[in-house]
Design a protein around this nucleic acid. Sequence first.
DNA 1: GCCTCACCTTGACCTGGATCAAGTCTGGGG
DNA 2: CCCCAGACTTGATCCAGGTCAAGGTGAGGC
Lengths: 259, 259
Amino acid sequence: MGVAAQQMLQAGRVPIIMTSTRIPDEIHDRCAHCIGREHSICNAIDDCDLAILASESSKMTVPDGRSFIEEGEPAHDFFVVTGGRVKLFTLLPDGRRQITGFAEGGDFLGLAASTSYAFGAEALGTAVLCRFPHASMQRLTSRFPNLEHRLRQEASRELTLMQARMTLLGRKTARERLATFLMERARLLSAPVPEPHAPIELDLPMPRTDIADYLGLTIETVSRVLSAFKREGLISIRGITHITIMQPDRIAAIAEGLE
Amino acid sequence: MGVAAQQMLQAGRVPIIMTSTRIPDEIHDRCAHCIGREHSICNAIDDCDLAILASESSKMTVPDGRSFIEEGEPAHDFFVVTGGRVKLFTLLPDGRRQITGFAEGGDFLGLAASTSYAFGAEALGTAVLCRFPHASMQRLTSRFPNLEHRLRQEASRELTLMQARMTLLGRKTARERLATFLMERARLLSAPVPEPHAPIELDLPMPRTDIADYLGLTIETVSRVLSAFKREGLISIRGITHITIMQPDRIAAIAEGLE
DNA sequence: GCCTCACCTTGACCTGGATCAAGTCTGGGG
DNA sequence: CCCCAGACTTGATCCAGGTCAAGGTGAGGC
């Protein structure tokens, strides 16, 4: 292990592995087979221009728990999550935390920033990111005007989600929050109506603390409400992360405050 | 009064006055002297092209309490608030309401929508709006590519604000919420540091109910906390709407959870 | 296999803010 | 000038969810 890496470990910091690809073919492939190509802003660019896209970006691997965006720091980069998961949050001076979102494969990060980031971000498990410096993004948008439109779309999508989350945080009960959370997770797996009443298997990759900070609750309340749902036969819990929604229609009703 | 207008009143609906300007000079003037020209997305367009901007938009006057965007309805228009004030909100089926923001002169509305609006909007006092149908906006952005960038900026600004609001709703106490709200209002009047300790006079144009629904509290709690602030000499209240922040530094500290 | 530590669950109790119920103030109309 | 309605304030009480304090559990290391 190199001296620099040792020093970082001693300082309690794990190094971020930065891969800089140089060979054009490899560059093209990196973007061609990336999940961002399917779902994220990268689909605003034609196949033939992928090399340009790749040359303006770099791949990063972030180890579990490592933070890679500090709230309030000058915002230099955008990111696309290409593997693993990430949590986004804001902090109050005394340490209270609000998780403002979880991001995974294909999600775009960095729009909520003017000159400095309005949020912090940290890997939830090992995460792989694609980084776009602001200057690169500017070159890309001026070359591919369509990309700017795509960025706006992404921002609109995010705004729509936040609108719903504000209602959750401001007006829903603990039961309603957990039910909403479970349905949100369920919607991530299967896009359209799967089967109206079929059980939905979920894997919650985040610890209870994170769920609590996401829903504006305490870890105890999250635990209690999940136990109550289980007792009522609405969900079943096997292992900490593995939850099955047994009665999706009823959970959905609770989420909307109808029960 | 015309028959149509009478029918609308009988149905409990007040007609929205729609002004369609036809004379080119007048059109140019409408945009040239508009507050949106200074602060909103309209400043992405050069003086010489203002007639185009005006021809793609129309002025609307909305009377107090009248709603002009229904949550969940198909999204056909963007709006710029050019006069008065507006409140944005989402509803739960049982009537619980979360006000997601107040908008005033220069603010842009409609980004939080994909095919349908993610929020409702209603005039707070008489409001004047400039309406841009989506098709018009599309023509404008393809003619003035800079405008698309401006829209993204606007979305980013909005996202940054929402980030802070989620922390407020998820993690702050009632005192902290009210203090944050007061500082937010103060920041609207004077951009930079006015005087560190000078009192700040505010005029709150919205009823307590709206403040409560904005902060995720009840009207009684809003009232009690404001009374407590007054008792502690942090603010003074004259009339319902007129509040003076006597100790801005302490209110600011409370807002951040430091007191 | 079993130890251990980190994470989760459960229980007992407390409290901030909601709810319920009177007052009180204000401004517009007669 | 007084009356009235709507909006705000204040007080009494309640309760959802927070806090504090033990237990349980299961995945990785020895």
